[in-house]
Write a protein that binds this DNA or RNA. Structure first.
Lengths: 146, 146
DNA sequence: TGGATTTTTGCAACTTGATTGCAAATAACT
DNA sequence: AGTTATTTGCAATCAAGTTGCAAAAATCCA
């Protein structure tokens, strides 16, 4: 559970990112939350940091492949720290599941994204696999008793 | 190439959607364009229809599984008519490719989306497979001569 | 150390995509 | 035709995200 100041600053520096107070706050918040977060959610968690600073930080992290982004199912972008030592290789990614009932986004970390065979000429940088439907909680609640 | 008035109205009626003039315009525009369109793009194509009407129509079509939606890689939602007789089964879907250089979205209609094994309890309604990288046009342009 | 330079930050304003309230227009139903 | 329900256009609004800019903080270097 590497989420203390020292470790965070190391992670940033390794990527050539100056570890300012705000950036460490953003990084640590994402490290602690074991799910994808939106700009708005980070804004709520980090009351002391302005949303423009969070936005700039997220974009900086994105450019440096410290995190990847995905659409959350309702048009909002969510961010998630890359797993494998700060690289964003396709193998490190996992599918996401958006519940159309409770509107939550799930990380399916146990599931591996199968890579498709691309037509010639396409260079793949990242893959996003998003499944939509009803999550276990909601499908259980709506299940009619037999 | 079923994009005349009569056929369109039939498609809508089969779904229980009243085929008004605007709705047929939206439907036919999507049928003719063989790619995913955003609300904004439809607005440009259909000069006579207000964007609020287009928006309401798209949501109506979505609810009735006449089309499916995906994020286009830059936070804008794009819509695409379902293939298989107006159902949105997972088999009918194809991956999309977003070029990070020219910012275009490609439909990889020749590629089949592999379905992953879901953990227990998840009910799957739809799947979105989005690949990001460099498209053939751009990767060709940037390729250094040997 | 101290002063100049660069980087980062917060605030407010703005941009953009999309939705909503409402009254007018259109269509549907006896 | 007259009544009711549905759809539409317009303007206003909302929300996510970005940007310009001046102040604050960090860095550089003689």
């Amino acid at each position: 559970m590497e989420s203390n100041e020292k470790d965070c600053s190391g992670c940033l520096e390794r990527k050539g990112i100056r570890p300012t107070a705000n950036r460490m706050l953003v990084y640590c918040a994402m490290k602690r939350s074991h799910k994808a977060l939106s700009l708005g959610e980070l804004e709520e968690i980090l009351e002391t940091v302005d949303k423009s600073s969070i936005s700039r930080t997220l974009n900086l992290f994105l450019e440096n492949h410290l995190l990847h982004s995905m659409e959350d199912g309702e048009g909002v972008v969510k961010y998630e720290l890359c797993e494998g030592h700060g690289t964003c290789s396709v193998d490190d990614m996992h599918p996401h599941f958006y519940c159309e009932m409770c509107h939550r986004l799930f990380c399916l970390k146990t599931v591996h994204i199968p890579m498709v065979e691309m037509p010639d000429g396409y260079v793949v940088n990242s893959v996003n696999y998003m499944v939509k439907g009803i999550c276990p909680d909601c499908s259980c609640k709506t299940k009619k008793p037999i």
